[in-house]
Design a protein around this nucleic acid. Sequence first.
DNA 1: TGTATTTTGTAATTTAAATTTCAGTTTGAC
DNA 2: GTCAAACTGAAATTTAAATTACAAAATACA
Lengths: 295, 295
Amino acid sequence: MSAKTVEQRLNDYLVTGSKAERRIATFMLASIAELPFDTAASISKRIGVSEPTVGRFCRTLGYQNFKALKEDLQHDIGGGPWLLGDRLKEFHDRNKTGEDEPGRGLELEIASLVRIYELARTEQWARAVKKIARDRQVFIAGFQTERGLAHYFAHQLQYLRPNVHLVDIAGGNFSEALLNGEKSTALVIFEARRYSRLSESLAKSAKSRGIPLTLITDAYCDWGHDLADEMFVVRTEFDMFWDSTAHMANLSNLLINSVFKELGPQVEERLNAVTRLHGDFIGYVGEAARQDTKS
Amino acid sequence: MSAKTVEQRLNDYLVTGSKAERRIATFMLASIAELPFDTAASISKRIGVSEPTVGRFCRTLGYQNFKALKEDLQHDIGGGPWLLGDRLKEFHDRNKTGEDEPGRGLELEIASLVRIYELARTEQWARAVKKIARDRQVFIAGFQTERGLAHYFAHQLQYLRPNVHLVDIAGGNFSEALLNGEKSTALVIFEARRYSRLSESLAKSAKSRGIPLTLITDAYCDWGHDLADEMFVVRTEFDMFWDSTAHMANLSNLLINSVFKELGPQVEERLNAVTRLHGDFIGYVGEAARQDTKS
DNA sequence: TGTATTTTGTAATTTAAATTTCAGTTTGAC
DNA sequence: GTCAAACTGAAATTTAAATTACAAAATACA
């Protein structure tokens, strides 16, 4: 259904449409950013056409109604697909034509990525990066499904700095792991709704010990604000049969990248040392484990 | 009416509010850019509170209802771009003007996602899904950095079907793990350049035993084509200081979703059983670990 | 100009969203 | 532990939004 963006469709009707259609199209284009706050009724009143006409116009554009138009607007990346251009559009089309459709998901994932990159510019991001880069000890935690993500993050961080620990529940009481007497300790937790309670209790015991917490979670975590110093909320709903925490991995890597930048060139030495060490035991394919440092 | 912005008001209730209020506030803050497209009802459903509670909360904040809150949002978001298309554009532009520079990476990541969704429609994807869903035994492997990803994938797959094993190198020779006499065995490997040699040798020994291999890797894997039955290549270069394999997690979840669809509704029973089991041991937060099955 | 076609608005209907009432539950003070 | 106050959800009601049916107006064009 949707080869074109809302904007493009509207443009088509600026010329070819009937009088009322042109009026509606003009108005919508002029205030496209406010459309989500409007209704078919509010628009019709403002520009002096009847409400059904607005509805009909939306249908002419290919939407079921004004609400459907708004939804499309929500995921519309606009004139944006600069570098992916036709590939994305083509994909978008093919799947909106309705055959099978794992396509709404893609739009949602893109929106989530944008959000993550926005987070990376916040003040709290900078704060978290500084801690993760500089604090003497860093503990990483994640339970159930998120354990893999914690492991992934920890492993990469270990290339950049020493004293990175993956928190383990094995002992039954992980808080002891944190009770290491160090003043300068940071804790990072990967957490998602509906999974375990462990995260919350770990967070509590961290707070009681004065250990600052960076929490990576979803939009359903209602205890995070009390306990976390920084809280990064990623999207988890991508039109899949259950929530996906995969974007925590995307955030992770962006975070790792920021930590790298924070540490600066001095980190290279460690990077090489760790790479060599792994190589001794496991057998690398030969090249360095990293690319040339561009940043 | 607006001494404070919506955001500020919400922040006030993150800590002081009641449980439902905190939940609502958390959610609204996390998805403030999508709020205009929501209704009180849609929000209440997603976060598991009743519709009237959302309405009441808006009133507590000083608005007549959710709609009034949205209107205020329209005003105090004011300057900044909030439509997805505009936000993307902002990144693109800022990146061009060159001030600070995390912007190119976003475009690359989006392109990579598009590619992954394209992969999901290929014939080899369907083949891999069928095997992962139906074969008697499934082994998942990943070493070094990719071990976390393998763990992540395996853990989720375990919700959907039995006999999922994370391949462990601990014994020194994992091929024994695969030597289980089963005819119907599948192997999935997460692999990235420059890390370990283990993947290749595991793949070889799988091939010699006639075990089909699904390989998730980067563009630099030169042995995959010979040894893998299906090979999914994800992008790893996102303008970061080293390659990121995070998109393997995105692919993972799409794969899991496909497996779910392949298995059909019959899988629900297992899903609930596993969820309950985890709950018994660890203590879930109460709700089911999954959403309603839409697909 | 007259007629067929398209476009549009009015009023009634249907559908969706928000609100009220009230009863059950939780929370916190004692 | 007990009780009052505050909080929350289910069901019913009200209100707002969108759609339909149909008639009036505008337009195209012979």
